[in-house]
Simulated scan of single mutants.
Amino acid sequence: MKHKQIAKRFWQSGATPMQTAADASERYDDLINLSIGDTDFITDERIIHAAMEDALAGHTKYTNPQGDPELIEAIQNFYRAEYEMNLAKNQIFVTTSSCMGMELVLMTILDPEDEVILFSPYFTPYKQQVELALGCAVEVETSEEDGFEIREDRLRAAITPKTKALILNNPCNPTGAAYDMECYQMIASIANEFDLIVICDEIYTDYMYEMPFVPFRSLPGMAERTVTLNSFSKNYMMTGWRIGYIVAEPHLTATMKSINENMVYAAPSVSQRAALHALGLHKELKKIYTEEYKNRVYYAAKRINQLPYASVLAPRGTFYLFMNIKKTGLTSAEFCARAMEEAHVAMIPGNAFGKAGEGYVRIACTTGTATLEKAFDRLAKLAF
């Protein structure tokens, strides 16, 4: 909105396609919402009750700005048990969500006009987050023909003297791509060659369907140039608690701490206690939710490939599907508008995820299979 009281850099900012879909979703009582990636599960009752007991016991005050010491120790133990990685306490910084964490990372590392490479299609906020930190987002397109894999030639072509970092989201929202060790090693080699920071968004680590998840910072020589973002939102069904953490070298976490103290001081104490208890239930929750979401995305993929006007790659990770709707002849926004109006099914148009997203829509399988069945029965009636 253009207004003299608003900073000029925000004059061109309008509602994102994600926000537009969310606003439109209120128009229909029978809407099936497959747009926003918010789970239909509530947080496990054991986590809720344990956090409540901690609150009653006095955990309602500011914590250490770096994070609750017990939570930091639990994160250390988790990485040691899960990945055989030893993290120092000063390599961990607890954040008010991984979205806030991403902004802290970018504010920490970027000087004005530094460039950050995004692999398109990318998680919608990345571009704005880079720009809020006064950096420049550079898109490197991936394609369905390549399985949305990252191509070395395209990556190299995008690097300039101003390139400071790249953002790697594995497994990937919105495409569902999951990157293997060959891809990791290619990116690591390029990061070393051009002295780049690799910002790893690893919030869907439990949703890898073809291979086990491997933290990028575990690659030889990568720890010192890797910043890892993680969250309790998706793996633990804790979206509303707004709690996550960053793993990085101490000089980076110290700067993030300084910035964060001037924004929110510390992450919410009760949410940190909930995260602490969630880590203790990881193996049990992973078994339940990973299997459930795998069943959902495989069912949805089967139904998509039965539609005469759509197709999708086999699911590899996350609980999203990036549906190709190019046969309809519509733009992604036009298709989503028709699906909303005629089928009362909400999805996110692919143009929300960068230039390479046009011709696709993102489906979030965050509702049960019975509801997905209803959604695809409706979509099957659309004619183009």
Results as ranks from 00 to 15, higher is better:
Tyr245Ile: 10
Ile246Arg: 05
Ala248Ile: 15
Pro250Cys: 13
His251Pro: 03
Thr253Tyr: 03
Ala254Leu: 00
Met256Phe: 03
Ile259Glu: 00
Asn260Phe: 06
Glu261Arg: 15
Met263Trp: 09
Val264Asp: 05
Tyr265Phe: 15
Pro268Tyr: 05
Ser269Met: 11
Val270Leu: 09
Ser271Leu: 11
Gln272Lys: 07
Gln272Val: 05
Arg273Tyr: 01
Arg273Lys: 15
Ala275Ile: 11
Ala275Glu: 07
Leu276Ile: 09
Leu276Tyr: 13
His277Asp: 05
His277Phe: 08
His277Glu: 10
Ala278Gly: 03
Leu279Phe: 12
Gly280Ala: 08
Leu281Val: 02
Leu281Ser: 03
His282Ser: 12
His282Phe: 13
Lys283Pro: 02
Glu284Cys: 07
Glu284Gly: 09
Glu284Ala: 15
Leu285Cys: 14
Leu285Val: 06
Lys287His: 06
Tyr289Glu: 12
Tyr289Leu: 09
Tyr289Asp: 03
Thr290Pro: 04
Glu291Arg: 15
Glu292Ile: 13
Glu292Asp: 15
Tyr293Leu: 06
Tyr293Cys: 04
Lys294Phe: 04
Tyr298His: 12
Tyr299Cys: 12
Ala300Arg: 04
Ala300Tyr: 02
Ala301Gly: 06
Ile304Met: 11
Ile304His: 03
Gln306His: 05
Leu307Asn: 12
Pro308Gly: 02
Ala310Val: 13
Ala310Cys: 13
Ala310Arg: 09
Val312Phe: 08
Ala314Tyr: 14
Pro315Gly: 05
Pro315Trp: 09
Arg316Tyr: 10
Gly317Gln: 05
Phe319Tyr: 15
Tyr320Cys: 10
Leu321Gln: 04
Phe322Asn: 01
Phe322Gly: 05
Lys327Tyr: 09
Lys327Ser: 08
Thr328Ala: 07
Thr328Val: 07
Thr331Pro: 04
Thr331Leu: 02
Thr331Met: 10
Ser332Ile: 09
Ala333Val: 11
Ala337Met: 03
Arg338Asn: 04
Arg338Glu: 03
Arg338Phe: 00
Glu341His: 05
